[in-house]
Design a protein around this nucleic acid. Structure first.
Lengths: 224, 224
DNA sequence: CGGTGCTTTGAGCATGGTCAACTAAAGTGG
DNA sequence: CCACTTTAGTTGACCATGCTCAAAGCACCG
């Protein structure tokens, strides 16, 4: 099998397990179970029982909700080393979102029961979780604010700048399909397409397919 | 002073302190400090150092952000027994939001250092925190989804139904000024005003000032 | 090749934001 | 208790943003 080392990956990659004492790491290694998902498969779906914390050991997954009117809203992209769990931690809760692998993805799972036990026996882990959740809350608050107060153009400019900063290069391939970028930014693929065309005609960037080259990052920043 | 019992209130009211062993409660009681804020005063402001967890022992406060373009976005209303803390838990972070008392409000504070120590010595507390944050994340994800996918009319209908359900009465006084409802729903006071007028003319409700009486909750639910 | 899904482009239009003027309600101070 | 100031809410006219629907162009994959 391709990813025999998945269990170790979870321990070494994931920030919530960092700085844990040896004894705790040993316990964690014991209770994680590894799963592999092919691109397009669901890690979970709305309505599933939320009974496990899921850690992406390798790969990428999109987490999104479907609103009453059928529209998708992207909540986040789970990258290698990140985890999804908030809902998994209370008893009797159902998933309200979907998590879909964007590429072949390895996932480590810890059941709710095991994880709750683990937190009680390892204060360091619990504190790490609180910190991780705290950061997620701050980020979600910003996402909410941005999505309701800023124009699509502004949000897109911001997204491009953040993406290029993360990749450390003015020339890059968009990490998501435009369709997904659209639901992430709370808009439609058509609008994304139009705004990119406009930005290109304003000489802010070049765009061919998913290839983007930022020409004028100051100009983009002006739009934010 | 009117609220001598503030310290105890924090312990008894707040879910994160529930089901803690006696010894931990004693420690908590020791390290909380009580503050009083008059209506309109700020519990904290953007730019302040985020160095304490704040628990509302009695009263109500609104937490909101101001976007780059100057627009407000309401993030939440802190009710009696609720707390605000995510940002306070990492070192060297600044507040990114404002918290303003909506009425005379008693607040218990615990400093970051004390709280981190406390979590390490009390796994129960840390687990409670993780659960509380988890629920907050779920709620924020729903807020983000709703605000980007549903129409203002739908969001307002939903807000009214939730509010009346919480108060358990079809006839009630809006708990916020319409201005604040507007920023909470990510819209403007004008639009709130118009939509309420429309709903009234559709015989879904009666509305005079902040008094609302829901006449047709099924009809409202149809809008959601 | 012939799908299947993604993207682009166009035309039309609905939603809701802006600005401005006015009314209503809620302090404030003599 | 009444004028005065301030804040909140309402209403109208206008208009920009961005969504919808439809059609056509691409790209990747079996």
């Amino acid at each position: 099998m391709a990813h025999e080392h998945t269990g170790e990956d979870c321990l070494s990659l994931v920030t919530i397990f960092q700085s844990l004492p040896e004894k705790d790491l040993a316990i964690v290694a014991d209770i994680v179970s590894a799963h592999h998902f092919k691109a397009g498969e669901f890690l979970y779906q709305a309505g599933d029982e939320a009974n496990a914390l899921m850690i992406v050991a390798h790969g990428q997954a999109k987490v999104y909700q479907i609103a009453a009117n059928g529209k998708e809203q992207m909540l986040r992209i789970l990258q290698t080393g990140e985890f999804d769990g908030e809902a998994a931690l209370f008893s009797n809760s159902e998933r309200t979102s979907f998590a879909e692998a964007l590429m072949d993805t390895d996932v480590c799972q810890i059941s709710r029961g095991d994880f709750q036990k683990l937190m009680k026996s390892s204060p360091e882990l619990a504190v790490n979780m609180v910190n991780a959740f705290g950061q997620r809350i701050t980020q979600l608050e910003q996402q909410t604010t941005e999505v309701t107060t800023a124009s699509v153009e502004s949000r897109l400019a911001n997204y491009l700048l953040e993406t290029s900063a993360g990749l450390d290069d003015a020339r890059f391939t968009l990490p998501l399909k435009k369709k997904d970028i659209a639901t992430y930014l709370g808009t439609t693929p058509e609008t994304i397409s139009r705004k990119l065309t406009k930005m290109a005609s304003d000489n802010l960037l070049e765009n061919k397919g998913l290839q983007v080259k930022i020409l004028d990052s100051d100009g983009l920043a002006m739009l934010v």
